[in-house]
Design a binder for these strands. Structure first.
Lengths: 217, 217
DNA sequence: CAATGGTGAGTGGATACTCACTCATTTCTA
DNA sequence: TAGAAATGAGTGAGTATCCACTCACCATTG
């Protein structure tokens, strides 16, 4: 599957960061992620994880002492490494290329970031489902993600508002429309396995029109 | 809570339809729904259900023989009674009032149907979370919901396309944009408990602009 | 040998589900 | 109509199973 590469890449970061992670532990993480994505966290047993990882059940518990720690270990790299990089790289790119139209901004978001999300569809899937149910995880995630988006995306939005490229709506609403459109597409294509390329143009046009500024009265 | 009335209403329908459902069984259903919505299906024990319903654990199993049957019983009225009515009433209303602009259509969808969804937020919540994880349930639901939407919404869209009130995009895409925008708002406000009234106008404007037809070249 | 990774049988607790019984209401019968 | 019988919702202690987690032991490497 196309997903495995970037998932591996995400884990690679953790491996590099926190010393060596032995191969079997990596298999445990990979298997956990896959099973959590397929069945959900609560419906996955540690025995299943061991089997899919080709490992004894005790091995599952060698490094991570509880099943919850395993979930955290699977999600952590995404929220602490991948997501920040995602947002910041994007902001940097936008600033560097001096996008002054929402068309350029939206195109960048859709083609670049949506593809990225779809590459990481497994983690995204687990994250979305668990955020819906686990209050603690949701708060923790929002506490990290929201300020990050605010700090990096909002200035850009303000800038575009100033030049009449965006309507004078609250930033959180604009962000919600963009994110909502992306996530709904993401979820849909995570079931139909359709590539972004086919839908991209339509989403761009829809967002571009939807976020057009109201005629100045 | 504002939700309880319409939830009760949904159960009322089933009660009326399939003979008498004794009061304690109704308490079991209500408790199940509430707990499933709060914690998710897999994280809810039958003991918890019994306690919240003020009932012995055996009572939980009198009518519904398994926990899965209980989930089905909680979701069934929504997909078989409420959702069809939701869609058909909407379609009927639209046709009756002869909406010929997308503004009227979108306004109707947002103010009317979104409020309805938020009234049924508990069932929606359970449905959404379980659809993400349970393949069988998802297929079953889509097999019912998709044709219903196609039969009732698509003709209206075609009609509006004909009079240049909608762009010539595939119907499923237009539907996705509308549904995605609504659901993302629904999920957000199911956490922040903000009323629809405040966001409605913005969503309407966003969708109306986003779904404006491209200038005929 | 020390240290670290790996093993898998075993354990305690939780949980979905059962069943023999009670009790109230309804239906049958003399 | 009084009493007997049947019905079925409700009960809660009990059971079989499952599952997260442990631990005493083994293997490999430096």
């Amino acid at each position: 599957m196309a997903t495995e590469m970037s998932i591996q890449a995400a884990f690679q970061e953790v491996m590099a960061a926190s010393g060596e992670i032995p191969p079997k532990q990596q298999q445990v993480l990979t298997a956990s992620l896959a099973l959590f994505a397929e069945q959900g966290f609560a419906n996955t047993t540690t025995k299943q994880i061991a089997e899919r990882a080709g490992v004894a059940e005790g091995t599952v518990y060698r490094r991570y002492k509880t099943k919850d720690e395993l979930l955290a270990a699977v999600l952590a790299p995404f929220t602490t490494e991948v997501l920040p990089k995602l947002v910041k790289e994007f902001a940097a790119k936008v600033v560097r290329q001096k996008y002054t139209t929402r068309h350029a901004l939206i195109t960048a978001v859709i083609t670049d970031r949506l593809a990225f999300l779809q590459d990481n569809s497994q983690v995204m899937r687990v994250l979305v489902t668990e955020l819906l149910v686990r209050t603690d995880l949701r708060e923790q995630f929002l506490a990290r993600a929201v300020p990050m988006v605010q700090a990096n995306l909002y200035p850009i939005l303000d800038q575009l508002k100033a030049v009449q490229e965006l309507p004078d709506w609250p930033n959180d609403r604009i962000a919600q429309f963009m994110i909502g459109t992306m996530v709904s597409q993401f979820i849909r294509s995570s079931f139909t396995a359709e590539p972004v390329a086919t839908v991209g143009p339509l989403m761009i046009q829809f967002l571009e029109q939807g976020l057009a500024p109201e005629p100045t009265a």
